[in-house]
Amino acid sequence: MSEWRDQLLQMLPGSSLLVWAVVLGGLGLWFRVALLDRPTALFSRILGLLSLVLLGFWLPRFGGWAEQVTFWLLASVAVLTAGTAISTRSPVYMAIWFALSLLATSGLFLFQNAQFIGFATITVYAGAIVVTFLFVLMLAQPEGDAPYDRVSWAWFSAPLALLAGGVLLAAMLLTFSPDGPGRPDASLGPVVPPSALATDQHHVARLGGELYSRHLIAVEVVGTVLLVAMVGAVAIVIQGKSAYVPGRQDGSRIRGRRDAPSASSGGAP
C-alpha cells in the first residue's frame, strides 16, 4: 500500500494532491448545495468520496493499521455526514445527519482518550440540543418540504461560500504540507510514551480537579451564563397576559349562551 502512495505522491507532488482534493471536494459539495432540487446526488457523492480518498493519501501516518483504520472510519463518517447534512433538502434529515456527525466526532474524542468529553458531547449535543431542535422543526414544518429549503440566496452565493471555505481550508492544509511552514517533522518522536495514555483510571477525577482548581472562575461564570440563558429563554417566549387570547378550549373563560361582551359587568340580568 505504501508504494502506491509513494507513486501517487511522485505523480502528483504534495501540494497539488491537496489542490485536487480540495477542488474536487468543493465541486462535489457545490453540486449538492447549489442545486438542492436537482438529482445530481450520485455524481457529487463520487466527487466527494474521491476528494476524501485523495486527502487520505496525503495525510501523514501516525500509527499502526488498527489505529489508522479506526481514525479514517470515524473521520470519514464525521465529514461525509456533515457534508450530507448541509446539502439535504429536508431539515429533519439535516438534524439527523448532524446527530450522526456528532456521534462520529464523539468517537474521535474517545480516540484521543477524552472519555468524558466524548460521552458528554453525545449526552448534551446529540441528546438534548438536536432533539430540542427536532421538536421545533417537527412542529413548525410538519411537511418537511418548504420552498426556501430548496434554493439558496442568489446564483453566486453557493460558489462564493465554497470559495471562502476552500481558501480557509487550503490555507490550513498548505501550512501542513511537506514544504509548508507548519508541517511537523516526521522525525519528531512521540511527545509522551504511548503507554502513559493507554488506560486512564482516574480521568474524570483529574478532569474535575483541574476544572475546579485552575478554571474555577470559568466554571462559575459558565454556570451563571446557563442560568441567565434559561431565564432569558423563558423571558423571550412568555408574552404576558395582555397578549394571551383565550379560546374555548382552555376553559378559562366559559362564555354563556348569549356571547355578550359585557356579560360579566356586575351581573345585571
Binding site: 501523514p60 501516525f62 489505529e67 511537523p184 518522536g189 511527545v191 509522551v192
Partner: peptide, 9 residues
C-alpha cells in the same frame, strides 16, 4: 504513535 502526525490529522 507519532503525536505530531496525529495532531495534523
Amino acid at each position: 504513535m507519532n503525536e505530531a502526525a496525529l495532531l495534523v490529522n
